[in-house]
Design a protein around this nucleic acid. Structure first.
Lengths: 108, 108
DNA sequence: GGCCTATATTGACATCCGCCGATCCAGCGG
DNA sequence: CCGCTGGATCGGCGGATGTCAATATAGGCC
């Protein structure tokens, strides 16, 4: 391979975990769930999602599982119902991933 | 369907465009490219990516196309080579998507 | 024009993803 | 204990995604 110019340095840090985070956010319905949880400072019942979203119950459950496995939400069963809330560090985790990829400009 | 408690309000704002942004970021190799471009304030030649990444040239080209279509990078051909750089508003676009989903806490 | 090289595009393939119906499991109430 | 209901899991289906080899395109250079 021939040279073009000053060879640029490719940052080869492993970012698969960050990519996984963004991937979990890469679906409109999951974003809706996250946005809802972020606004309802309180917890949200699964039945609220199944009621409001144009999705069948198994699909809702599937998306919630993905968010759970990404560590973005937590859940708690109380009686028949299951309540979800935004993970305490969700905002920080996303923020960290973002800034690790695009570092803060100093003295913009 | 039976009621559990106080019915929560699901935020039904359309977030497909934001989801598309996150989706473009949801691949480790694409994150590597973005991180490299963000650090090299200057432009980066495609050949630097094909040289450094464990991917064949068509695959690199494919990922760059996805980033281009997401509006995250721009490219310019000069002679035989093509140079990519981070789109001017890339940082702002991601930031906006993030905050639209998880609004800034006031008086944390 | 003809060849060489860097990048883009195409086609194919295996895998993953979003979705649903069917089924399973956990609490509740009789 | 039994049936009911909310939620999770399973199985399958169609479409998207990551990857590569092969080919096309574009710009030097002779």
């Amino acid at each position: 391979m021939q040279r073009c110019c000053p060879p640029a340095t490719v940052d080869l840090t492993d970012r698969s975990s960050h990519a996984a985070l963004f991937k979990a956010l890469g679906d409109p319905h999951r974003l809706t769930m996250i946005a809802t949880l972020a606004r309802a400072e309180d917890e949200v019942c699964v039945c609220d999602f199944t009621g409001a979203l144009p999705l069948e119950q198994p699909t809702v459950s599937h998306h919630l599982k993905i968010l759970r496995e990404a560590g973005l939400v937590t859940c708690e069963r109380r009686g028949t119902w299951v309540y979800y809330r935004l993970a305490a560090d969700a905002r920080d985790r996303i923020d960290a991933a973002f800034h690790s990829v695009i570092p803060q400009k100093v003295l913009a």
